[in-house]
């Protein structure tokens, strides 16, 4: 933790509090800025501590939101419960938890690399489970709270370029759906975000790029989905229709297509 001053709490006007895992760049960083502009008190984690600190300084200098940062590699799953406890202690509570950490390798239908694929599953799926289980328990006991997972349109279909990435996101979607069904009766909201293409570092690894939106735009749309307490949101929304079609392409045709 760092030692930026924390202002005196006001019980009647509590500051909303959020944690974002995977906030050092791209969508996570943009969402951190967006939440800060709404007055959120933030705890941000990722591996690249220097980037996080720059982001923190930027947010704290703006004065509306407030920000603490933590270096963490989600592949160290066993550290999640302890770090979560520490973050919660520093924040003094939690309203919103966003799991945004994710990696993707360049799409290549000729590459069968278990090491690389296992890493994708570790970061995108196992890390999410390691964080979200203790968060879910806490929100369930509290009787409220909001969990957001950043999935992907890629999880809606198994494409030949990135089978493990698609599987990690499909797994995440199903896990989030299960959590939602478990927690809805306890007043907890679970939102699955499925971005299409967003202009971030990750996009360098995408097979084709068609009309991506900026990370800021994605963050704005994600914020709207959070505020509306949506179950699932495609970002931007037109991907809902694109994916509706793609999901219904029969398998024997899909495998012949250049998608």
């Amino acid at each position: 933790m760092d030692d930026s001053p924390i202002e005196a709490p006001r019980p009647l006007e509590p500051r909303p509090k959020a944690i974002i895992i995977g906030a050092s760049s791209g969508i996570g960083a943009a969402l951190a800025r967006r939440l800060a502009s709404e007055g959120y008190f933030l705890a941000l984690a990722a591996r690249r501590g220097d980037l996080l600190q720059d982001l923190r300084d930027e947010i704290n200098a703006q004065g509306k939101g407030q920000c603490l940062t933590y270096s963490h590699d989600v592949r160290q799953a066993e550290q999640a419960p302890e770090l979560l406890q520490r973050m919660l202690r520093d924040l003094g509570g939690l309203d919103l938890f966003v799991y945004c950490a994710g990696i993707m390798y360049p799409s290549d239908p000729e590459r069968f690399d278990a090491e690389q694929d296992l890493e994708i599953l570790q970061v995108n799926l196992l890390g999410a489970v390691a964080w979200l289980d203790p968060v879910a328990l806490r929100f369930r006991r509290e009787g409220g709270g909001h969990i957001v997972g950043i999935g992907s349109v890629a999880g809606d279909r198994g494409r030949r370029g990135t089978p493990a990435y698609a599987a990690s996101k499909a797994g995440l979607h199903t896990y989030l759906e299960g959590l939602r069904n478990r927690l809805a009766r306890h007043g907890v909201t679970v939102t699955t975000i499925k971005p299409g293409q967003v202009q971030t570092d990750m996009l360098k690894n995408a097979p084709q790029v068609r009309g991506p939106i900026t990370a800021e735009r994605a963050a704005e749309l994600i914020w709207r989905a959070i505020r509306a307490r949506k179950s699932t949101a495609y970002v931007p929304a037109r991907w809902r229709w694109v994916m509706l079609v793609i999901r219904h392409i029969p398998s024997f045709i899909f495998r012949r297509m250049n998608l």
Binding site: Q79, P81, E82, Q85, R86, L137, R141
Partner: peptide
């Protein structure tokens, strides 16, 4: 890192 407080003691 410091040890965990037991989550089963977590209450609202």
């Amino acid at each position: 890192m410091s040890p965990l407080l037991p989550p089963d003691h977590l209450e609202r």
